[in-house]
Amino acid sequence: MNINLTLIGQLIAFVAFVAFCMRYVWPPIAGAMAERQNKIADGLAAADRAGHDLEVAKQQADEQLAEAKREAAGIIEAANKRAQALVEEAKEAATAEAQRVKAAAAAEIEQERARAQEQLMTQVSALALAGAEKILAAEIDADKHADLLQSLAAES
């Protein structure tokens, strides 16, 4: 064991290397590691947040879907009702129209019948008159019945 100047040399080298490490090695590495730690922590937090957001969005989507389904069902029901109402309305209108046509036809028939009756009566009376004329012509003495005829004429 020879203690000699090597000890001093090593001491100087030791101080130099420690100083170098303290100034040029440790701070950049420790800084980068701390920075990365923060970055990872931030990243994990962001991932957590994103997961949470996704959950919320899913829930919202589900809710909207359910609402849309409900709305669609409502619309279909309303449409069905409306269709039924339209059919009902059309039926009523048709019935009314049929009735009206029927009534018009009946009225026309009645009218025709009345006119025919009238005509017939006119013809019958004319015929009766002619017949009566003929009979009367045979039996009536103009002089004799002049008064009667006159009163008839006055009456008519």
Partner: peptide, 19 residues
């Protein structure tokens, strides 16, 4: 060996990033 240590670690320190 001390220089080797300094060189090695300095090289890493220069390239150290948060990546």
């Amino acid at each position: 060996l001390g220089v080797l240590f300094c060189w090695l670690f300095r090289r890493v320190a220069v390239n150290a990033t948060a990546g």
